[in-house]
Amino acid sequence: MLRLPRFKYLRPKTAREAARMAADLGPRAMFVAGGTDLFPKLKRRQFDIETLIALDFLPRDIRNGSIDCVVGAGVTLAAASRDEHLTQSFAGYAEAAGLVSSPPLRNAGTVGGNLCVDTRCNYYDMTYEWRKAAGFCMKKDGDICLVAPSSPRCWAVSSSDTAPMAIALDCVVSLTGPDGERELPVSALYRDDGIEYMAKQPSEVVTSLKLSAHRDTRTAYAKVRRRGSIDFPIAGAAVAIQLDGDRVVRCRIVLSAVASHPLEATAAEAFLKGKRVEADAIRETADIAAKPAKPLDNADLSHFWRKRMVRIVVEQALLEATTKTPGSKVKLLGQPQE
């Protein structure tokens, strides 16, 4: 049986207290909410820690204002995927939450946790013994990148399903640090680096996610993975699109699992803005969106094929957002049927 390493377990009552503990203890302490990402990685000895700081206090409610919807970071992905307000007003977000891993993991995994989920690489998400045999990589215990040995940086892949959608929706996270609180757009939460993939301070706790509804904004998330469940995304596209009639007023397209951070397809967004939503424009937008995606050979299936799929998921998400009723699911082939 794979087992967890020994650790001390702290249970602060507030986010401020948690942040102070984290600041005091430094890198040998980590936060734990749902544990669905952290515990497997601890069992594989991907982190050396002495202390876990529990985030049990995180709010687990979804507060709907007239414009804003504030989702507590402790809300489970299952609850978020089924919440009536979210499925109606932020269909893409609910859809992304409902496509994370598998049902039992969504019952434990949280909204905050999925935003902070560690970057992944199939040279890194392996047991200690396997990594020792392969030679340790720079993300843990080693000094080179095994997928791109001549590269000075780590190419682990951002694998959150909800983060791209949160960026596409201009969401804002509330952070609590040892000295105070601040808000940060989700788009500013990440860095393009496989190791230092988050821009927040390690001691800052994500306490909530604020979604804002623009009228006429339609959203959709399309995800590719090998199986209908359990798997992380190997390509995904989150789309939020605001229409005036059939003309695009505003559009955000953010890709998952093709870089070390959620990758915004800015050129494609600019291209589609002002255009009418029709098949040719969508296809061309998808082509442009796929260009900056540079998947490497460190996730399931070949990177050539994953690159090809970026275009498809963008197209799927745009089609779904613009032609289907909110909340309905367009399924890729190989995905579960309705």
């Binding site: 794979l2 087992r3 019952n107």
Partner: peptide, 27 residues
């Protein structure tokens, strides 16, 4: 698997299915 990948260790917590390999009793 003990890594949350197979579902074999599913138990119910307050009626909801969760994986006991990824849960601490203290939680």
């Amino acid at each position: 698997c003990e890594l949350g990948e197979c579902g074999t260790c599913t138990v119910l917590i307050d009626g909801r299915a969760e994986l006991s390999c990824l849960v601490l009793p203290i939680q």
